[in-house]
Amino acid sequence: MKRFIIITLGAFLSLAPPAVAQAGLQIDSLFNGAIVPASTITESVVSGKELKSYNLDYFRSVRFKATDAEIDRIISWLEVDALVAVNKEMDSEEGKLVYALLSFPADRNRNKYVGYQIKEVSGSKFVTVVYLTGKASLSDLKVIFKHR
């Protein structure tokens, strides 16, 4: 009986998940409504066969009018995420991040990208953040989106 308990305990401990956290992104907080409520956000989510021709399997985009404090918070999340990005294109204006395109390590052949931009319209700042996954390469993304 004792033998059985010890071996069983050993087996359970071996199944315990490692304590390394999942590689979730800081920017996930934005998509989860951490800054602005869902009612004030323009959100698009596309998945499935509509994206197949773009070599994508998931597309999510949020756009909203942001205050400077909200923008600073988003930028801080992006800067942390950029540390684990394999490729980053980040541009600033007047010391503030206005554009970012981050590529993250592929997970089961699926690349992950986060895009961020600020546009000023009639004195208000609009933030757009996109999250994409799929086999698409960075070159594919540069054809999918219009250039500014």
């Binding site: 541009d91 600033s92 010391g95 961020y116 999918i144």
Partner: peptide, 23 residues
């Protein structure tokens, strides 16, 4: 340390408001 009024634009910017433009 980045002085105000300066721009650090090094990359071609994609417009994330207009996806699937190539199609």
């Amino acid at each position: 340390q980045i002085p105000s009024g300066s721009s650090d634009r090094k990359h071609v910017h994609l417009d994330f408001d207009i996806p699937f433009y190539n199609k």
